[in-house]
């Protein structure tokens, strides 16, 4: 029974249009790092309040968890605003250690620090 179930795996295409390939962006994990590569005062002044705070903070590299803690902003709001800033080319999402396959001690430490200060 188990053998035949194994053989059947993945017979169904995810969906027909692209044969299952996807360009979906990786989800923003707590440890995902983001930064503003080219800080621009004009952009800063143009942004609405909460996006502006993230834009300013990310002049130095931040994790999603750190942004949430530093700005006392719910995680869902951080994820939406970071995603919007990235789509507009204002902010860069770094490939995470997990996705890049590179474990990184510093990263784990800063995630831990972010988690310890996060508020719900």
């Amino acid at each position: 029974m188990k053998g035949t179930a194994m053989l059947r795996s993945s017979r169904v295409r995810p969906y027909a249009i692209t044969g299952g390939r996807t360009i979906a962006r990786m989800p923003l994990l707590l440890e995902t790092l983001v930064s503003v590569p080219d800080y621009d005062l004009m952009v800063h002044q143009m942004l609405v309040a909460e996006s502006r705070d993230i834009y300013a903070l990310c002049r130095s590299v931040q994790s999603i968890a750190e942004i949430s803690a530093a700005l006392d902003m719910p995680l869902g709001v951080v994820r939406v605003l970071v995603s919007d800033l990235a789509d507009d080319g204002r902010l860069r999402i770094h490939p995470t250690a997990v996705h890049a396959g590179v474990p990184e001690h510093m990263l784990l430490e800063r995630v831990l620090r972010g988690l310890q200060t996060i508020k719900h």
């Binding site: 995810p14 969906y15 249009i17 692209t18 996807t22 360009i23 979906a24 962006r25 989800p27 923003l28 909460e50 902003m73 719910p74 995680l75 869902g76 709001v77 994820r79 939406v80 995603s83 919007d84 789509d87 719900h120």
Partner: peptide, 23 residues
């Protein structure tokens, strides 16, 4: 996946009331 390919913005997050309140 198709939504993102067609230009929708997809955010992976289990939404809370405090998220919604600010969004």
């Amino acid at each position: 996946e198709a939504l993102e390919q067609r230009g929708g913005r997809v955010i992976i997050h289990g939404v809370t009331v405090s998220d919604l309140d600010r969004l």
